[in-house]
């Protein structure tokens, strides 16, 4: 009774009551404007700080170039085609290394995670290799495959392949056994269970792994172009260091960051397009 009379007595209050928004509650959605505002504040703070330090003459210009100088350098290097040339070289190196690593690591990782025998064969190598910094291998790579483009691709390959194989084998291992057993009780042969159930069940995890390791591939770029490169964003940065052309260094860093971001977004879009049944929000 009392609840009925309450509801009747204060309908307005009930209707106008807004959900409480608490911006600091864990795991709680926050309004979109609040999210965008916070992000915008971060971006403007970083750029603002950059402007303040450079235009305010608080830091010497050969240590920290002003934004307009970097922009002008960018415009000049785009106009004369040199930036695009460096980009093309680097993208070529990254994609070749990443592609080679992926086409080997995906099948091997899936098998390693679901076939104990494959795991037993592969694991000793991967568990050893995954802790080795790629930089430690560069002298050997130079000795074995020289200083050409192959060496740069090999750095990217080694930097991503072993991580991919570990992550993908984990994805494959986490596919529930009940899923495979269901397929068997529906009449699937072993081959059908692998091809029609195990494989598709790993796709979302494989795509996530590709996204993560693509990011790591970009982080190896400068290391890859450390030795005897003639072109590439990493090479461009290293060359600029010798002449203290900080504007070019900044331009290189920004370009790598933007290309990394673009490839990440592209893989995310690809995932949502190829795997609509596992779409992310």
């Amino acid at each position: 009774m009392s609840s009925v009379s309450n509801a009747a007595g204060a309908p307005e209050a009930a209707a106008t009551r807004r959900p409480r928004t608490d911006l600091l509650a864990p795991k709680q959605e926050i309004p979109r404007p609040a999210y965008l505002t916070a992000s915008a504040i971060t971006a403007t703070t970083v750029i603002g700080l950059w402007c303040l330090l450079s235009y305010g003459d608080l830091v010497r210009s050969d240590f920290l170039p002003a934004p307009d100088v970097v922009a002008a350098t960018g415009a000049r290097m785009i106009a004369d085609g040199s930036l695009l040339g460096h980009m093309a070289t680097s993208v070529g190196v990254i994609f070749s290394g990443f592609f080679l690593a992926s086409i080997l690591a995906i099948p091997l990782g899936i098998m390693m995670g679901s076939f104990r025998l494959v795991e037993a064969v592969v694991e000793p190598i991967t568990n050893f290799m995954r802790y080795l910094p790629v930089t430690a291998l560069i002298p050997l790579l130079i000795l074995w495959i020289g200083i050409g483009i192959e060496q740069k691709i090999a750095v990217i390959f080694l930097g991503t392949f072993f991580q991919q194989i570990i992550l993908i084998s984990d994805v494959s291992r986490r596919v529930p056994k009940d899923l495979i057993d269901s397929a068997y009780t529906l009449g699937a042969t072993r081959k059908q269970a692998v091809l029609r159930v195990l494989l598709p069940a790993t796709y979302p995890g494989v795509m996530d792994t590709l996204r993560v390791t693509m990011g790591w591939a970009w982080t190896y770029l400068v290391v890859a172009e450390l030795v005897a490169a003639q072109s590439g964003l990493g090479y461009m940065i290293l060359q600029a260091m010798r002449g203290l052309f900080t504007d070019v260094i900044f331009l290189g860093i920004l370009t790598i960051g933007l290309l990394g971001l673009a490839s990440d977004q592209a893989l995310k879009a690809l995932r949502n397009r190829l795997l609509p049944w596992a779409r992310e929000r």
């Binding site: 529930p176 009940d178 899923l179 057993d181 269901s182 009780t185 529906l186 159930v197 598709p200 069940a201 796709y203 795997l275 049944w277 596992a278």
Partner: peptide
């Protein structure tokens, strides 16, 4: 011998 499991075993991609 068809089986229904306690865990959810539908194929999510279908």
């Amino acid at each position: 011998r068809g089986m229904v499991f306690q865990s959810y075993t539908l194929f999510p991609w279908l």
